[in-house]
Design a protein around this nucleic acid. Structure first.
Length: 372
DNA sequence: TCTTATT
């Protein structure tokens, strides 16, 4: 029965847990081959801060509080800031986390870089000292040969300076290059030199010249674009209609199983039915949906909960319950998720999941305070 | 032919 509803989480437990986050850019795209996730710990020079981190590719709906919750699970945070558009207040998808202890900053890079949250794979690295020279160093490149790889693109531009990120945009359906990409240099003067040297030039073997210019600054979007962004569907976490339908299907079956009802259930409707039946509304808390996770190992930590539940949707908080004296996990923990559908999907997928040599039990938290 | 990397 249950196997019908189990969906493997979109990450490899074995790889994630034993080796730390992997360099997986399937959903985000941007990366530098040399500098993105290969060895972010080594990128800071002696003059750089060893406590201040920049976090990129955050899910659009992630708040500063959630950012703090996630990174606070590593160690004490001195300050934390999610960068937002000054006008619209929309998250720009990145933020800063400054730890008290440099060792915690290093640990955060080692354990959270590459963490998957919803459709994103976050990047955690040391922040460079802020200065005017590193601003506006992002280039927009078009007219690229469709066969050109990200590596070849970097090779072409690397003669002009240190590349921070590179990206080639691909067709969402076919995966083929759209001939358009981005190169972010460490410093603006490097970007300027690359424009001088490469704009209107033909890359080796290419038949057409490429265009290289400064990329549009996202904070300078037209009000038109801002409006259309505001009116976008708030639920773009899953790839497309098919996946949405599949998700709906599984959710309906889950609800059918859990509540003996057929379909078309919103969280409100469930509340109605379960209230009538005299059952507690499981997991429902003012701030979201609380999930109970049982059979965690003694050395389990918060990051494993983020890793497991993050891909399913908006997670606002995780907690591992520990023994006061030994500081070891007492075998269970809690996860709070904002949206009912996502919490239900996470439960359906992760309940019965084998984590190491343990089989997890995952369910909505009940309100029971003691055994009957 | 434009994603969200410097508070």
């Amino acid at each position: 029965m249950k196997s019908l509803y189990i969906q493997k989480p979109p990450f490899s437990m074995e790889t994630q847990l034993s080796n730390g986050p992997t360099c997986n850019n399937t959903s985000n795209g941007p990366s530098t081959i040399s500098n993105n996730c290969s060895s972010p710990v080594e990128s800071g020079s002696m003059e750089d801060s060893k406590t201040n981190l920049i976090v990129n590719y955050l899910p659009q709906n992630m708040t500063q509080e959630e950012l703090k919750s996630l990174f606070g699970s590593i160690g004490e945070i001195e300050s934390c800031k999610l960068v937002r558009d000054k006008i619209t207040g929309q998250s720009l998808g990145y933020g800063f986390v400054n730890y008290v202890d440099p060792k915690d900053a290093e640990k955060a890079i080692n354990t959270l870089n590459g963490l998957r949250l919803q459709t994103k794979t976050i990047k955690v690295s040391y922040a460079r000292p802020s200065s005017a020279s590193i601003r506006d160093a992002n280039l927009y490149v078009s007219g690229l040969p469709k066969t050109m790889t990200q590596k070849e693109l970097e090779q072409l531009f690397s003669q002009y300076g240190r590349i921070i990120t590179s990206r080639i945009l691909v067709d969402q359906v076919t995966g083929v290059s759209r001939g358009v990409g981005f190169i972010r240099f460490d410093r603006r003067i490097e970007a300027e030199e690359a424009i001088k040297g490469l704009n209107g030039q033909k890359p080796p073997g290419a038949t057409e010249p490429i265009t290289v210019k400064f990329a549009n600054n996202p904070s300078q979007k037209t009000s038109q674009a801002l409006l259309s962004q505001l009116y976008q569907s708030p639920n773009r976490r899953y790839p497309g209609p098919l996946a949405q339908q599949a998700q709906r299907f599984r959710l309906d079956n889950l609800l059918n199983m859990a509540y003996g009802v057929k379909s078309r259930f919103s969280p409100m409707a469930i509340d109605g039915v379960t209230s009538l039946a005299g059952i507690n509304i499981p997991g429902h808390a003012g701030t979201g949906w609380c999930i109970f996770v049982y059979n965690l190992a003694p050395d389990a930590d918060e990051s494993i909960l983020w890793q497991m539940f993050g891909p399913f949707g908006a997670v606002t908080n995780v907690k591992v319950i520990r023994d006061f004296n030994t500081n070891k996990c007492k075998g269970f923990g809690f996860v709070t998720m904002t949206n009912y559908d996502e919490a239900a999907m996470a439960i359906a997928s992760l309940n019965g999941y084998r984590l190491g040599d343990r089989v997890l039990q995952v369910s909505f938290k009940t309100n029971k305070t003691h055994k009957a």
